[in-house]
């Protein structure tokens, strides 16, 4: 009966490798979808630089997701998925409050960096509970990948021209009253 369902949560002490892989897929999926949403918001609100960067993040997260799906298929084929999107929230996806109209590309990159750091912290924290050695191995890899991602974003940041000195000022029109 659907009425009895409660929003489930994850017990990491008994998490199987299959569920762990599926969870990793969902984490990437969530990040991809969020970047997509944020990019769309920024397009709607005429903030093209940041929007373009988030669109790029959509592609990156999608790539990660595909890689993980492949890994999962190799190990478990089409065995049914045991975890759901509703079990996680904002693991690698930036929070909704991270974006602003007229934010700069630099700010967008900083947002992504923060999200990679957040994901790293997530794996560090759940690893305390994980007992299954295969799951441990997977999560350690994922944790370390987050560090690599951070480095990539940092390198991009370094390539950007120096920050706009007026960056913190919002000079745009206010919202249209209705």
């Amino acid at each position: 009966m659907t009425r009895q369902q409660q929003t489930p949560s994850i017990d990491f002490t008994i998490l199987t490798l299959k569920d762990a892989l599926d969870l990793a897929v969902l984490i990437e999926e969530e990040a991809r979808d969020r970047y997509e949403e944020l990019s769309a918001q920024l397009v709607l609100h005429r903030t093209p630089g940041a929007a373009a960067f988030f669109a790029k993040m959509v592609r990156i997260e999608e790539l990660h997701r595909k890689q993980l799906i492949e890994q999962r298929h190799k190990a478990f084929g089409d065995a049914p998925v045991g975890v759901r999107r509703e079990m996680i929230f904002d693991v690698e996806a930036p929070g909704y409050d991270e974006v602003r109209m007229n934010m700069t590309t630099r700010q967008a990159l900083e947002t992504a960096l923060k999200s990679e750091e957040k994901a790293h912290a997530f794996f560090v924290s759940v690893l305390h509970n994980v007992q299954n050695p295969e799951v441990r191995k997977l999560f350690e890899e994922l944790r370390d990948e987050e560090v690599e991602h951070q480095e990539l974003v940092k390198a991009e940041l370094a390539k950007l021209p120096p920050g706009d000195p007026l960056e913190r000022f919002d000079v745009g029109d206010g919202p249209a009253p209705q």
Binding site: T2, T7, L38, L42, H45, E86, Y96, M101, M103
Partner: peptide
């Protein structure tokens, strides 16, 4: 059409989840 960063985005997300849990 909300401003980027508005709290209502999160509420909407939470609502989707609650509705899916209700089914």
């Amino acid at each position: 059409i909300w401003c980027p960063g508005c709290g209502d985005f999160g509420v909407l997300q939470g609502l989707y989840r609650a509705l899916s849990a209700i089914g």
